[in-house]
Protein backbone atom coordinates (compact mmCIF):
# COMPACT_ATOMS: atom_id res chain seq x y z
CA UNK A 1 0.00 0.00 0.00
CA UNK A 2 2.67 2.49 1.11
CA UNK A 3 5.11 1.52 -1.63
CA UNK A 4 2.39 1.83 -4.24
CA UNK A 5 1.38 5.29 -2.99
CA UNK A 6 5.07 6.22 -3.08
CA UNK A 7 5.31 5.02 -6.68
CA UNK A 8 2.15 6.90 -7.59
CA UNK A 9 3.47 10.13 -6.08
CA UNK A 10 6.81 9.63 -7.84
CA UNK A 11 5.04 9.10 -11.15
CA UNK A 12 2.89 12.20 -10.56
CA UNK A 13 6.02 14.26 -9.92
CA UNK A 14 7.63 12.79 -13.02
CA UNK A 15 4.59 13.86 -15.06
CA UNK A 16 4.73 17.33 -13.47
CA UNK A 17 8.36 17.71 -14.48
CA UNK A 18 7.82 16.41 -18.01
CA UNK A 19 4.74 18.49 -18.78
CA UNK A 20 6.09 21.77 -20.12
CA UNK A 21 2.81 23.59 -19.41
CA UNK A 22 3.71 23.54 -15.71
CA UNK A 23 6.82 25.63 -16.33
CA UNK A 24 4.58 28.46 -17.54
CA UNK A 25 3.31 28.86 -13.96
CA UNK A 26 6.88 29.32 -12.69
CA UNK A 27 7.73 31.80 -15.45
CA UNK A 28 4.55 33.79 -14.72
CA UNK A 29 5.47 33.85 -11.02
CA UNK A 30 8.95 35.18 -11.78
CA UNK A 31 7.67 37.78 -14.23
CA UNK A 32 5.06 38.97 -11.72
CA UNK A 33 7.71 39.40 -9.01
CA UNK A 34 9.97 41.37 -11.37
CA UNK A 35 7.01 43.50 -12.49
CA UNK A 36 6.07 44.25 -8.88
CA UNK A 37 9.56 45.66 -8.24
CA UNK A 38 8.90 48.27 -10.91
CA UNK A 39 5.44 48.83 -9.45
CA UNK A 40 6.85 49.40 -5.99
CA UNK A 41 9.44 51.87 -7.25
CA UNK A 42 6.60 53.88 -8.72
CA UNK A 43 4.17 53.87 -5.81
CA UNK A 44 6.27 53.73 -2.65
CA UNK A 45 7.80 56.64 -0.83
CA UNK A 46 11.51 56.01 -1.17
CA UNK A 47 12.33 57.80 2.08
CA UNK A 48 10.23 55.60 4.30
CA UNK A 49 10.30 51.84 4.82
CA UNK A 50 11.32 51.25 1.27
CA UNK A 51 13.61 48.42 2.18
CA UNK A 52 14.04 44.96 0.71
CA UNK A 53 11.74 43.68 3.43
CA UNK A 54 8.82 45.85 2.46
CA UNK A 55 9.39 44.88 -1.16
CA UNK A 56 9.23 41.18 -0.26
CA UNK A 57 5.95 41.68 1.57
CA UNK A 58 4.48 43.98 -1.08
CA UNK A 59 5.36 41.76 -4.05
CA UNK A 60 4.28 38.52 -2.38
CA UNK A 61 1.03 40.02 -1.10
CA UNK A 62 0.23 41.27 -4.59
CA UNK A 63 1.10 37.92 -6.13
CA UNK A 64 -0.74 35.72 -3.65
CA UNK A 65 -3.95 37.75 -3.74
CA UNK A 66 -4.15 38.06 -7.52
CA UNK A 67 -2.37 35.69 -9.89
CA UNK A 68 -1.37 32.74 -7.72
CA UNK A 69 -4.87 31.62 -6.59
CA UNK A 70 -5.96 31.62 -10.23
CA UNK A 71 -2.84 29.69 -11.28
CA UNK A 72 -3.38 27.16 -8.50
CA UNK A 73 -7.02 26.73 -9.46
CA UNK A 74 -6.06 26.20 -13.11
CA UNK A 75 -3.45 23.64 -12.10
CA UNK A 76 -5.66 21.79 -9.62
CA UNK A 77 -8.64 21.76 -11.99
CA UNK A 78 -6.53 19.89 -14.54
CA UNK A 79 -5.11 17.25 -12.20
CA UNK A 80 -7.88 14.65 -12.34
CA UNK A 81 -10.02 15.90 -15.21
CA UNK A 82 -7.07 15.65 -17.61
CA UNK A 83 -6.81 11.92 -16.76
CA UNK A 84 -10.54 11.30 -17.30
CA UNK A 85 -10.49 12.46 -20.86
CA UNK A 86 -8.44 11.03 -22.73
CA UNK A 87 -9.01 8.29 -20.14
CA UNK A 88 -5.43 7.67 -19.02
CA UNK A 89 -6.95 7.02 -15.59
CA UNK A 90 -8.01 3.56 -16.88
CA UNK A 91 -4.36 2.57 -17.34
CA UNK A 92 -3.54 3.59 -13.77
CA UNK A 93 -6.52 1.84 -12.18
CA UNK A 94 -5.86 -1.31 -14.22
CA UNK A 95 -2.45 -1.64 -12.52
CA UNK A 96 -4.26 -2.33 -9.25
CA UNK A 97 -4.08 1.17 -7.76
CA UNK A 98 -7.26 2.19 -5.98
CA UNK A 99 -9.24 5.31 -6.78
CA UNK A 100 -8.46 6.71 -3.33
CA UNK A 101 -4.73 6.20 -3.87
CA UNK A 102 -5.10 7.98 -7.19
CA UNK A 103 -6.70 11.04 -5.54
CA UNK A 104 -4.17 11.02 -2.66
CA UNK A 105 -1.26 11.01 -5.11
CA UNK A 106 -2.83 13.94 -7.00
CA UNK A 107 -3.36 15.89 -3.77
CA UNK A 108 0.23 15.34 -2.62
CA UNK A 109 1.65 16.21 -6.06
CA UNK A 110 -0.45 19.39 -6.06
CA UNK A 111 0.81 20.28 -2.59
CA UNK A 112 4.40 19.82 -3.78
CA UNK A 113 3.62 22.00 -6.80
CA UNK A 114 2.23 24.66 -4.42
CA UNK A 115 5.43 24.54 -2.34
CA UNK A 116 7.56 24.91 -5.48
CA UNK A 117 5.56 27.96 -6.60
CA UNK A 118 5.77 29.47 -3.10
CA UNK A 119 9.51 28.82 -2.90
CA UNK A 120 10.06 30.30 -6.37
CA UNK A 121 8.10 33.41 -5.44
CA UNK A 122 9.91 33.81 -2.12
CA UNK A 123 13.40 33.28 -3.53
CA UNK A 124 12.75 35.68 -6.42
CA UNK A 125 11.28 38.31 -4.08
CA UNK A 126 14.16 38.01 -1.61
CA UNK A 127 16.75 38.16 -4.39
CA UNK A 128 15.24 41.19 -6.10
CA UNK A 129 14.52 42.82 -2.75
CA UNK A 130 18.17 42.51 -1.79
CA UNK A 131 19.53 43.67 -5.17
CA UNK A 132 17.10 46.54 -5.74
CA UNK A 133 16.47 47.83 -2.23
CA UNK A 134 18.93 46.21 0.17
CA UNK A 135 18.26 44.83 3.63
CA UNK A 136 18.63 47.23 6.53
CA UNK A 137 17.02 47.24 9.92
CA UNK A 138 13.35 48.03 9.87
CA UNK A 139 13.31 51.36 11.59
CA UNK A 140 11.49 54.66 11.69
CA UNK A 141 13.10 57.92 12.83
CA UNK A 142 16.06 55.97 14.19
CA UNK A 143 13.86 53.70 16.25
CA UNK A 144 14.28 50.03 15.33
CA UNK A 145 10.86 48.48 14.81
CA UNK A 146 12.10 45.02 13.95
CA UNK A 147 15.47 43.32 13.72
CA UNK A 148 16.55 41.01 10.87
CA UNK A 149 15.90 37.92 12.90
CA UNK A 150 12.50 39.08 14.06
CA UNK A 151 11.48 39.81 10.50
CA UNK A 152 12.61 36.45 9.08
CA UNK A 153 10.99 34.53 11.92
CA UNK A 154 7.67 36.30 11.41
CA UNK A 155 7.96 36.00 7.64
CA UNK A 156 8.54 32.24 7.81
CA UNK A 157 5.60 31.76 10.18
CA UNK A 158 3.30 33.81 7.96
CA UNK A 159 4.48 31.92 4.88
CA UNK A 160 3.81 28.59 6.56
CA UNK A 161 0.33 29.78 7.56
CA UNK A 162 -0.28 31.03 4.02
CA UNK A 163 0.32 27.48 2.75
CA UNK A 164 -2.84 26.34 4.52
CA UNK A 165 -5.19 28.75 2.76
CA UNK A 166 -3.51 28.11 -0.58
CA UNK A 167 -3.94 24.39 0.01
CA UNK A 168 -7.64 25.10 0.51
CA UNK A 169 -7.63 26.74 -2.93
CA UNK A 170 -5.97 23.63 -4.41
CA UNK A 171 -8.42 21.30 -2.64
CA UNK A 172 -11.33 23.24 -4.11
CA UNK A 173 -9.78 22.93 -7.60
CA UNK A 174 -9.25 19.19 -7.13
CA UNK A 175 -12.89 18.76 -6.07
CA UNK A 176 -14.11 20.47 -9.25
CA UNK A 177 -11.60 18.42 -11.25
CA UNK A 178 -13.09 15.21 -9.85
CA UNK A 179 -16.66 16.25 -10.63
CA UNK A 180 -16.07 17.67 -14.14
CA UNK A 181 -16.19 15.42 -17.18
CA UNK A 182 -13.16 16.91 -18.89
CA UNK A 183 -10.36 19.42 -18.56
CA UNK A 184 -12.10 22.34 -20.26
CA UNK A 185 -15.28 22.06 -18.21
CA UNK A 186 -13.20 21.75 -15.01
CA UNK A 187 -11.20 24.89 -15.78
CA UNK A 188 -14.28 26.85 -16.85
CA UNK A 189 -16.21 25.80 -13.74
CA UNK A 190 -13.41 26.48 -11.28
CA UNK A 191 -12.52 29.91 -12.67
CA UNK A 192 -16.19 30.83 -13.08
CA UNK A 193 -16.96 29.82 -9.49
CA UNK A 194 -13.93 31.72 -8.18
CA UNK A 195 -14.85 34.92 -10.05
CA UNK A 196 -18.47 34.70 -8.89
CA UNK A 197 -17.41 34.07 -5.27
CA UNK A 198 -14.97 36.98 -5.37
CA UNK A 199 -17.61 39.22 -6.94
CA UNK A 200 -20.45 38.50 -4.53
CA UNK A 201 -18.72 37.66 -1.26
CA UNK A 202 -18.86 41.17 0.20
CA UNK A 203 -22.26 41.97 -1.29
CA UNK A 204 -23.94 38.94 0.28
CA UNK A 205 -21.76 39.07 3.41
CA UNK A 206 -20.13 35.67 3.02
CA UNK A 207 -16.57 36.96 2.96
CA UNK A 208 -15.81 35.35 6.32
CA UNK A 209 -16.61 31.92 4.89
CA UNK A 210 -14.78 32.08 1.56
CA UNK A 211 -11.29 30.53 1.44
CA UNK A 212 -9.84 33.36 -0.64
CA UNK A 213 -10.68 36.00 1.98
CA UNK A 214 -7.90 34.83 4.25
CA UNK A 215 -5.05 34.55 1.75
CA UNK A 216 -3.83 38.09 2.39
CA UNK A 217 -4.02 37.78 6.19
CA UNK A 218 -0.60 36.32 7.16
CA UNK A 219 1.61 38.56 5.00
CA UNK A 220 -0.62 41.56 5.69
CA UNK A 221 -0.13 41.08 9.40
CA UNK A 222 3.67 40.96 9.08
CA UNK A 223 3.46 44.05 6.89
CA UNK A 224 1.53 45.88 9.62
CA UNK A 225 4.07 44.77 12.23
CA UNK A 226 6.95 46.12 10.12
CA UNK A 227 5.16 49.45 9.99
CA UNK A 228 5.14 49.56 13.78
CA UNK A 229 1.39 49.01 14.08
CA UNK A 230 -0.05 47.00 16.93
CA UNK A 231 -1.30 44.00 15.09
CA UNK A 232 -2.08 40.63 16.55
CA UNK A 233 -2.28 37.13 15.08
CA UNK A 234 -5.33 36.25 17.08
CA UNK A 235 -8.31 36.05 16.92
CA UNK A 236 -8.30 36.21 13.10
CA UNK A 237 -5.84 33.30 12.92
CA UNK A 238 -8.46 31.00 14.46
CA UNK A 239 -11.07 31.92 11.85
CA UNK A 240 -8.40 31.55 9.21
CA UNK A 241 -7.46 28.04 10.33
CA UNK A 242 -11.05 26.87 10.86
CA UNK A 243 -12.38 28.16 7.52
CA UNK A 244 -9.34 26.88 5.57
CA UNK A 245 -9.53 23.48 7.27
CA UNK A 246 -13.27 23.26 6.57
CA UNK A 247 -12.73 24.01 2.88
CA UNK A 248 -9.96 21.42 2.72
CA UNK A 249 -12.00 18.74 4.50
CA UNK A 250 -15.20 19.36 2.52
CA UNK A 251 -13.41 19.57 -0.84
CA UNK A 252 -11.26 16.48 -0.36
CA UNK A 253 -14.09 14.41 1.15
CA UNK A 254 -16.28 15.31 -1.83
CA UNK A 255 -13.44 14.33 -4.17
CA UNK A 256 -13.10 10.89 -2.54
CA UNK A 257 -16.87 10.33 -2.61
CA UNK A 258 -17.22 11.40 -6.24
CA UNK A 259 -14.29 9.32 -7.49
CA UNK A 260 -15.64 6.28 -5.64
CA UNK A 261 -18.96 6.58 -7.49
CA UNK A 262 -17.30 7.30 -10.81
CA UNK A 263 -17.74 4.58 -13.43
CA UNK A 264 -15.66 4.17 -16.55
CA UNK A 265 -17.95 2.85 -19.28
Amino acid sequence: MCSQIKEMITSELFKLLKNKVNYIYIVVTLVAIIASSFGMKLIENTDNLNTGYSFILFSLQTLFTTIIPIMLLLFAASTISSEKNPRTIRNILATGCSKNQFVISKVIASLIFLLVIMATAAIAAIFIGYIAFGFGNISEDGFIIMTHYQFWAKFLISYAILTISLFAVISFGIMISTIAQNNISAITTVIGTYIVLEGIKTKVHIENFVFSSYIEFPLNLVSELTEGLHASWTPKLYYYLIISALWIIISLSTSFLVIKKLEFK
Binding site: S11, F14, N19, T88, N91, T95
Partner: peptide, 20 residues
Amino acid sequence: SFYNYLSGKENILLLAKLKG
Protein backbone atom coordinates in the same frame (compact mmCIF):
# COMPACT_ATOMS: atom_id res chain seq x y z
CA SER B 1 -4.73 6.62 -24.25
CA PHE B 2 -1.32 7.76 -23.13
CA TYR B 3 0.35 10.90 -21.87
CA ASN B 4 1.11 12.77 -25.07
CA TYR B 5 3.91 14.79 -23.48
CA LEU B 6 5.82 11.62 -22.58
CA SER B 7 7.66 9.27 -24.90
CA GLY B 8 6.48 5.72 -25.51
CA LYS B 9 9.23 4.41 -23.25
CA GLU B 10 8.37 6.85 -20.46
CA ASN B 11 4.71 5.88 -20.66
CA ILE B 12 5.47 2.18 -20.32
CA LEU B 13 8.01 2.80 -17.52
CA LEU B 14 5.42 4.80 -15.61
CA LEU B 15 2.90 1.96 -15.71
CA ALA B 16 5.60 -0.63 -14.98
CA LYS B 17 6.55 1.19 -11.78
CA LEU B 18 2.93 1.35 -10.70
CA LYS B 19 2.78 -2.41 -11.15
CA GLY B 20 5.92 -2.73 -9.03
